[in-house]
Design a protein around this nucleic acid. Structure first.
Lengths: 110, 110
DNA sequence: AAACTATATCGTAATATTGCAATATTAAAA
DNA sequence: TTTTAATATTGCAATATTACGATATAGTTT
């Protein structure tokens, strides 16, 4: 117990859940928004921008990276982060599909 | 510790994270997809459709409902569930905005 | 090389999540 | 009214997440 039973679900369902889970924390939403708003890659400003400790930010960045939502590039002794635009397209694609299915069907009773 | 420091983030960021967090589990993705694919409201079939125990499904439904992603309507001794279409629009709107910002900016270095 | 800077990792405490058996609740049917 | 059916709640064990201090690592500067 305590563990998600991923084996009952499709790969696509697990992959989708895992992307959205990575975005399911306000600090990670804030990091994504910061990276996007900043008009360029961010090297070393993230810790100053978000009021959490450096290890905590580093951990959140790792999770975003594992989920494929951001990319990192080593730049001297700093690391430049930016959004993986493909991942955002994938998410939009997913919800676009959902919307199409909603629009195609008969209608709700609730 | 162990608790998310929501006070450091905007209401919008917390609200967005909380919706996406609700979708950040394969069982809840599967429930959403089932409700959408089913072309009508679902009264009582969810437990048979997803290989998790009845209490576990009930708990996931509660979380989806708390996050505003689904609606429930009492129908005799059963409960009919359906997707809250507005919530999907909200999510699409959020990622649409993100995409606009990405397209407006100079470009990545990564 | 020594000091400095940026980031990652380790270890750990506090809390949250997942899943289920048992039980409660509520409405319908017999 | 007893039984049946559908769903919710409670209680709990296993595991995951969140956050951070301390420390490690790696590149830069002096």
């Amino acid at each position: 117990m305590g563990t998600t039973k991923t084996e009952h679900f499709t790969d696509k369902q697990n992959a989708t859940a895992s992307m959205l889970k990575a975005l399911g924390h306000p600090a990670r939403i804030a990091i994504m928004e910061f990276l996007i708003t900043a008009n360029h890659c961010i090297c070393g400003d993230i810790v100053n921008e978000i009021p959490l400790s450096q290890p905590t930010i580093s951990q959140h960045l790792k999770e975003l990276k594992n989920a494929g939502l951001i990319k990192g590039r080593v730049e001297g002794n700093a690391i430049c982060y930016c959004v993986n635009e493909q991942s955002i397209s994938d998410i939009i694609g997913y919800f676009g599909n959902i919307t199409n299915k909603i629009n195609q069907r008969a209608g709700n009773c609730c």
